[in-house]
Amino acid sequence: MIGLIGDSLWRGWAGLLILSLASTLAAQWVGAGIATPLIGALILALAYFKARLILSRYLGLAATPFWNRGFGMVLGGYMAGLLVLYLIPLR
């Protein structure tokens, strides 16, 4: 068990499960007094971190900092674009 905790693949998998659960739970907060745009932004941020985990741990980009950083920046820009599109009707 301790070996699994120290293993980057298993930790990545656990992180993905936790982030997925967190985003599903966050979606339940709509209408519970928390501003909807904040919940939407949180869900998109969690999706970004999940995608980064898959790129770095499963696809092995953690071993190549140049590409890991590059993919992270492009993905971050894309998620920011999605956030803008999501927020437009809420203005």
Binding site: A27, I39, I43, A51, I54, Y58
Partner: peptide, 22 residues
């Protein structure tokens, strides 16, 4: 397996946008 991870990656973006964003 890289193809498989790509399928995984696409889903973690699709799921929150289509199912969860309100």
């Amino acid at each position: 397996t890289a193809f498989w991870h790509m399928v995984d990656l696409v889903w973690v973006l699709l799921f929150p946008v289509i199912y969860l964003l309100r």
